[in-house]
Design a protein around this nucleic acid. Structure first.
Length: 803
DNA sequence: AGCACGCCGACT
DNA sequence: GTCGGCGTGCTC
């Protein structure tokens, strides 16, 4: 029997199956989707069985046998195996990367090299003998001095010692020690044999007699009896109990926040959506729905009830949410409804915890998974529905290889299972809404808030006017008044600061110089806490200059609107205000995010000040004011989606106010109040925004009118990168259809990162059947020739941003 | 990607 | 004469 195996080597010529002999002993157990350890050239690597067959086209002498079968039960199902092939092809990545992205990191291989002494009597080097200290097998990494390394090399050359690679797993299954207590009679027997001065032992056996034939955790036994582990050990040796190890799951302790009250009866709009979804789920067709529901319209309730419907039919559900809204408040709602049937996957879990959640899914112990992007690969076997909440979020696109979009994967999987996909959003992406308009997706609209609350009153504040009247602070008079009012009424305010882009940089007021990173063409961000400047791209760090590096003026200081600066201004304006700041700095610690939100929900602060991360999911009854300090930051990004992103953000943020009984009010501060993205987000007018934005996209030939693929080149040498980019785009122009537009090559918006120059070209097309094939050919040129000169090239099919 | 093989310069 | 530089080529 022959196995086709994809080996764990990310390289161009290796990106194909290799044939291996299946040892006879494994023939009856080996299955496609299992991991194996195989010899590959001179080393051993991990591989995935992708197929089994009787004959190989190769010379049988070339075939090597599989070294070891790691999984008796495949870790990749047949469906996921097909999906990985599609994914690799679609995103132009290696098949091995497509396979590994589906599994928790704990299942990926860890390689460790060992020195193995084969001819001990031939060892002569005194230092080396001393280093070995009698050992026959030593981890190679213990060899740290260069002289020892030399000796090792010499001995390897002479065949006196060998190097062996151990292929291991990252995280093991967590096991706990269990104690199975013997029978009553046996215990009596043990008891009579104990010397009378061993009081603790007697005490323990007597306790055990009361728990005869039970199996308890060793820890529990020691806690309950207050007896030392040595005593327990002695008793076990005497035969009073047997030690066992039980697999257990690491239980990530989620602090429970209270769920909002569930409306007893769905609203009419919810019911219409529910009926259609249920009918589709029962039909066995793969249908994609777009739920366009205003903030607070109760989309989550629709998800929950549809999941219930699907579970009742014995099927499973995948719920994807953006990482930042995957809060305990969010997951608690699912756990409350479906209890132990829910697995949660998010980046806050340790590798072991993620592996445990994955195993629960793999073994079929749960039926619902709630998670971020990668949960779309949940190893279910009978999926009944896949839901993407906040479908417009760019985090659904993975930014490194394989550069997949969770939406595409979800739809692909749904086709296999003949089940519906729900895309939900208050501000759908233009792509999705366009598809819904064309009938590719089924549109479900929810225009009313579930509890019939009014949408909050939105005021756009023109900051130019504020400046004219001499107000140089970050807070307009109107917003400051509104905050003051809330404090008097003991209501809460949320202040949103869009930190993306050029938030807090150091600027010379005399010559206008901005301090930039020496490695990347981007301004350095000022960090108040350490009084330093940091580059967000390469991590470069430096002191804040005292004089301008260009004109030596002393009028150089930080400028802009970081959360720390906003916090200081609040302290000046409202000295008595209790403020919680949420940004990357204050939420880095594990659990900090939840802790801060809980403090706010418990009314321990008047003002919540934060970045992106507070735009979503916040749902507390006492919030009646939302302020956007600077709406412009996203508006002026060098990206064709800038307006769309701004509109989405403004709408999301506004939705945080007045979700319950108290009416909400929103202030948006901007220097461009007349911009349609701002103007139309005031009343959450999605349709007019869509129409307007679609016109702009059509005019400039951007998605959804065209598909876009981005090719990026980087090199240390500006001239070389320009040359290669030119060659690349030349090749594309020559090989793609004449209707396809190739823009560039041009320098990227951030033209240098980490001392490497960046060039890119953009392929725009409506229909390009040869695209994958042509790109594959281009990649082949790159991988075989260009790569040697230090060039890197990456392909991003349908990128979310074109920086 | 690794790793071995192999062919030319500066040292014990 | 050998050690070691990294160019070339292969991995079932």
């Amino acid at each position: 029997m022959i196995a086709e195996i994809i080996v764990d080597v990310s390289a161009y010529p290796i990106d194909r199956p290799f044939d291996y002999l299946v040892p006879e002993a494994l023939e009856s157990v080996i299955e496609a989707g299992a991991r194996v350890k195989v010899p590959f050239g001179p080393r051993k690597v991990l591989g995935y069985v992708t197929g089994l067959k009787q004959e190989s086209a190769l010379n049988p002498k070339k075939l090597k046998p599989i070294h070891e079968l790691i999984d008796l039960e495949p870790v990749i199902s047949g469906e996921l195996l097909d999906l990985s092939r599609w994914l690799a092809n679609h995103t132009l990545s290696y098949e091995i990367d497509a396979l590994q992205v589906m599994l928790p990191a704990a299942l990926r291989a860890k390689y460790e090299k060992f020195i193995v002494v084969t001819e001990p009597e031939q060892l002569l080097d005194a230092d080396f003998i001393h280093f070995l200290a009698g050992r026959k097998r030593v981890p190679l990494k213990e060899v740290d001095s260069s002289s020892l390394m030399k000796t090792v090399k010499k001995y390897v050359g002479q065949g006196i010692i060998a190097v062996d690679t151990k292929v291991g797993q990252h995280t093991a299954v967590k096991k706990i020690r269990m104690i199975r207590i013997a029978s009553h009679e046996k215990l009596q027997e043990v008891l009579s044999a104990i010397q009378s001065n061993a009081k603790k032992q007697i005490e323990l056996v007597q306790w055990m007699i009361r728990h005869a034939e039970e199996t308890l955790g060793a820890k529990t036994v020691m806690e309950q009896t207050g007896i030392q582990s040595t005593v327990l050990k002695a008793i076990i040796e005497k035969g009073a109990a047997v030690e066992e190890f039980a697999e257990m799951y690491r239980e990530p302790d989620a602090p429970m926040l209270k769920d909002v009250a569930i409306p007893e009866v769905p609203t009419t709009e919810q019911q219409v959506a529910l009926d259609k979804l249920a009918a589709s789920a029962d039909s066995g067709k793969a249908e994609t729905f777009l739920i366009h529901g205003v903030t607070g319209s109760g989309k989550t309730e629709v998800y929950l009830r549809t999941i219930k419907h699907v579970l009742d039919k014995g099927k499973e559900a995948i719920v994807l949410v953006p990482e930042i809204s995957l809060t305990p408040q969010m997951t608690a709602r699912f756990k409350e409804r479906f209890g132990p049937l829910v697995a949660v996957m998010h980046s806050g879990l340790s590798a072991g915890e993620k592996y445990d959640e994955w195993r629960k899914i793999h073994r079929g112990e749960v039926s619902v998974v709630v998670g971020a992007r990668s949960a779309v690969f949940a190893p279910f076997q009978n999926i009944g529905i896949i839901i993407l909440d906040e479908e417009h979020e760019s985090t659904y696109k993975q930014e490194d290889t394989p550069r997949y979009h969770a939406r595409d994967v979800a739809i692909k999987r749904s086709e296999h299972y003949g089940c519906p996909v729900i895309l939900g959003s208050a501000t759908p992406s233009l792509e999705s809404y366009a598809r819904a308009s064309k009938g590719v997706y089924t549109l479900l609209t929810m225009t009313k808030r579930a509890k019939n609350q009014e949408l909050p009153a939105v005021t756009v504040v023109d900051m130019r006017e504020e400046l004219k009247t001499g107000n140089r602070s970050m807070f307009s008079v109107q917003l400051a008044d509104a905050i003051r009012q809330r404090m008097e009424r003991k209501e809460q305010s949320v202040l949103f600061l869009n930190k993306r882009g050029f938030s807090s940089f150091v600027l010379c007021r005399d010559c206008g110089t901005v301090v930039e990173c020496p490695n990347c063409d981007i301004s350095l961000t000022y960090h108040r806490a350490h009084e330093r400047l940091k580059c967000h791209y390469c991590g470069h760090e430096e002191q804040v200059p005292l004089v301008c590096p260009e004109c030596e003026s002393e009028h150089i200081r930080f400028f802009g609107t970081g959360t720390q600066k906003a916090e200081e201004e609040i302290a000046k304006l409202f000295p008595e205000a209790r403020v919680i700041r949420m940004d990357v700095d204050t939420t880095r610690q594990k659990g900090a995010h939840e802790r801060l939100l809980r403090q706010f929900s418990e009314g321990k602060a008047d003002i919540l000040l934060g970045t992106q991360m507070i735009a979503k999911g916040l749902d507390f009854p006492n919030i009646t004011l939302v302020g956007v300090l600077a709406a412009d930051t996203t508006l002026h990004l060098a990206d064709f989606r800038a307006a769309e992103k701004t509109f989405q953000l403004m709408t999301q943020v506004s939705g945080r106010a007045g979700r319950h009984d108290l009416p909400g009010e929103v202030f948006i501060q901007t220097y461009s109040p007349e911009h349609y993205a701002i103007e139309l987000s005031k009343a959450q007018h999605y349709e007019p925004f869509y129409t307007h934005e679609m016109m702009a996209r059509k005019q400039y030939g951007y998605p959804p009118f065209y598909f876009v693929t981005l090719i990026q080149f980087t090199h240390e040498d500006l001239l070389k990168v320009a040359d290669f980019a030119e060659k690349g785009s030349r090749y594309l122009k020559d090989n793609l259809s004449p209707d396809t537009v190739i823009i560039g090559p041009t320098a990227a918006a951030i033209s240098r990162v980490n001392n490497r120059y960046r060039y890119q070209c953009l392929i725009k097309y409506k229909k390009e059947p040869k695209l994958t094939e042509t790109l594959q050919q281009l990649i082949k040129y790159y991988r075989t020739d260009w790569i040697k000169s230090g060039l890197t090239m990456s392909v991003d099919v349908e990128p979310v941003s074109i920086y």
